[in-house]
């Protein structure tokens, strides 16, 4: 466990609470992609299956896994009940099946082992790397975003970006290297690069998030 990893995990945790706070404070889920949230729930459910047999291995990991699954399920529940009037299926239209299909194909082609758990784990890693696309697509269609939504996206993007120095650290200092997670993590971070740029040049300077 190193500083980058801890900061990455905390950033991930913070992003979920920013999202819940956004819905509470604006009493709306406008601008949030339900598709992306459902993809994340799929990611956590397929990756954290090991919670049943590694519960005692690390209390930190197990409790984070539970929090990610439950808070994302709660977010989806809120979006589909309390805040459903703000859902806009006309804007949230990214072809999610391609993402699930592509991740499934990569998982079957490149698992570490051909066991149900390892294939599902690989699936979750590839799916996570592209799960943000429906959300970014929605942002592009509307052309602007509430500031709190951009903080959510920044925290979520920062999480995987911080995992990259964590992987480098572990590679050099511990001889640990996880090629699937690293390649997928780099792709995931690259998908955010445009967003990071606009967040840095506009939101951090007090301006509204608007696409040029």
């Amino acid at each position: 466990m190193n500083l980058f990893r801890i900061l990455g995990d905390l950033s991930h945790l913070v992003s979920i609470f920013i999202l819940l706070q956004k819905m509470r404070s604006t009493r709306s889920c406008a601008g949030i992609s339900l598709r992306t949230q459902i993809l994340y729930l799929m990611v956590y459910c397929t990756r954290y299956l090991d919670i049943f047999w590694t519960f005692n291995a690390s209390l930190y990991n197990s409790s984070m896994k539970l929090v990610f699954i439950l808070s994302t399920a709660y977010t989806i529940y809120l979006m589909r009940t309390v805040y459903k009037t703000a859902l806009d299926p006309q804007i949230d239209t990214f072809a999610t099946y391609y993402l699930v299909g592509g991740a499934g194909l990569l998982a079957v082609l490149f698992p570490y082992k051909y066991t149900v758990y390892e294939v599902l784990w690989s699936f979750s890693i590839w799916l996570e790397s592209v799960a943000i696309l429906p959300q970014l697509f929605m942002l592009q269609r509307t052309g602007e975003a509430e500031t709190i939504t951009t903080h959510y996206l920044f925290a979520l993007g920062a999480y995987r970006a911080l995992y990259i120095p964590n992987w480098l650290y572990r590679w050099f200092l511990e001889g640990h290297f996880d090629p699937i997670a690293t390649v997928a993590g780099i792709i995931q971070t690259l998908l955010y690069s445009d967003f990071f740029y606009i967040y840095y040049t506009k939101v951090l300077k007090g301006k509204k998030f608007e696409l040029p």
């Binding site: 990893r5 991930h12 090991d50 590694t54 990991n61 990610f68 964590n166 640990h176 996880d178």
Partner: peptide
Amino acid sequence: IRIEEVKDEL
């Protein structure tokens, strides 16, 4: 490359 039996990252 060492592949861990138990995944230790989230």
